[in-house]
Amino acid sequence: METAIRLNRLHKSFGPTPIITDVNLDIVKGERHAIIGPNGAGKSTLFHLISGRYEPTSGDIELNGESIGGLPPYEIYRKGLSRSFQVTNIFARMSVYENIRCAVLWVKGYKYSFWNRVDNMEDVNERTEEILERINLADRAFVPAGLLAYAEQRALEIGIAIAGGNQVIILDEPTAGMSHSETEQVVELIRSVSEGKTLVMVEHDMGVVFNLADRISVLVYGRIIATDTPENIRANPAVQEAYLGVEADHE
């Protein structure tokens, strides 16, 4: 099986504090992989390392067999990985349409062009419209993104991540703060956009995780204590003790 992302003895510390410790993980091409763990386990930090926001202290990250550890975010994006954020991170003063269109430009090859007008780029605009239909924001296309309702901004957040059509997508808590029905819609959206692609997501909602994921990794205090199928993770005593047990008591 080919790996999309390989984490090899990955470490990250801030000053003397280790956040990610000796993480090894292979994410197989085409799988939907969820990373779960208690608050402060280092899940978001792990995503920041993979996507280039942080540099690893030591160890390596490979994307499709190529080392990407320490590259800037835009280089990693160009190699085929894109991401969404836990806290909505959009272009607030631009229209929803422009938000998505900007996320389409690089992959369509226009790069830093300052001689072609975007209005003339039929391929870019059609792709933008396709994405807007897909994330259900077509009728909000010309509204400034900052004025969208929370759930709409979350949909836009995912839209920006998938617009370029990268083969590896990582989503940081895509359903954070959503109501039950909104969550269901987002799950369907994620299912359809990740068809034939590699998906990694951090998620707190166990319903979403067990519904979507082919495999699950459990991160506790910066270490992965288990990686397995949902059934085996549910049955794993170490996981139950560290994480799910606590969850189960509450529910």
Partner: peptide
Amino acid sequence: NAVRDNAERAEFIG
């Protein structure tokens, strides 16, 4: 405009 609004996110779209 995108970099003006959110320079960080611009880096994550290439």
